[in-house]
Amino acid sequence: MYAVFKRELFSFLSSMVAYITIGIFLLVSGLLLWFFPDTSILDYGYAEMGGFFSLVPYLFMFLIPAITMRSFAEERREGTYELLITRPITLWQIIFAKFLASLVLVFFALIPTLVYYYSISKLGFPEGNIDSGAVTGSYIGLFFLGAAFTAIGIFASSLTKNQVIAFVVCAALCAFAFLGFDYTSQVSALGSIQGNVSSFGINQHYTSMSRGVLDTRDLLYFLSFTMLFLLFTRLTVGGKR
């Protein structure tokens, strides 16, 4: 499993795709946080990162599909998929290795954004006047959100050998998982179950963690969601095997 993980990770790092993708993510998030009038924290006037954490999930909908689209699709396109599945490791080990390699890249993309926290803390009046608990909870929420989106991306990549199709499918599924249940819950015909429908969506649980309160229900939700899509990947890869 470690060999597959290392090969997958170094495959990303040896290509320009990972650096360009992460660079664009950091550039756009920086512009949205500091320069664009509608989202700039300098215009907002308060030392808090709520605006940043509300924007990042939408950036993840493009960053993570770009990272994961090649996981299985490229193996099939280059003809190395058959060699991979005949190695003396289980399908679960292959799936987890690819999942962890992609998640490590997402983690690498988040690390430079800690500069935003440091800068905002220094700009606060008095200095350091920022809710560190809420920031910590939001970063933990982002990590679990990234894990959920990464599992979706691995699943989407297992469906096809075309990376573009894998990207589009992943982006669509991530958007629906994050926003679809919230929009569906607004349908008046659902009546008393509107709140229950929205609880199936990622947004409600991510928002809860962003308040700085780590509820076991939210953690279990993200873990269950991630494992569900990894199971779908296992069924897809196993069926094609």
Rank of each mutant, 00 (worst) to 15 (best):
V106L: 08
L228R: 03
L63D: 01
A177N: 09
T80W: 10
F222A: 00
R76D: 01
D38N: 13
S157D: 00
I130D: 05
L26A: 00
G180H: 12
F149C: 05
S119K: 15
T113Q: 14
L142T: 07
I64Q: 08
Q163I: 00
Q163F: 02
T216D: 02
Q194L: 04
A177I: 08
S15R: 09
F232E: 01
F36W: 13
V197P: 11
F229R: 04
R7N: 14
F125N: 14
L231Q: 00
G141E: 03
I130T: 12
E78N: 13
L91G: 04
G195I: 11
G128D: 04
H205V: 10
I64S: 08
L31R: 07
P57G: 07
L145D: 07
Y118D: 06
F36M: 13
F232T: 03
R87M: 12
F99I: 13
M49W: 05
G128K: 10
E75H: 03
F96Y: 12
L84E: 00
L190R: 13
L105Y: 09
E127K: 15
V4M: 09
G51S: 05
T184H: 03
R77K: 15
E78P: 01
F96A: 05
I95W: 10
Y116F: 15
C170V: 11
G180N: 10
G141H: 08
F12A: 02
A97D: 05
L223F: 09
V115K: 10
I64W: 13
I165K: 00
E48Q: 15
T236V: 06
K98V: 09
Y116R: 14
I193L: 12
G137P: 02
S11N: 09
G180W: 12
L100T: 14
F62I: 15
A101S: 14
G146H: 08
V187H: 06
F52Q: 11
N162L: 01
M16E: 03
L223D: 02
L159M: 12
V168E: 05
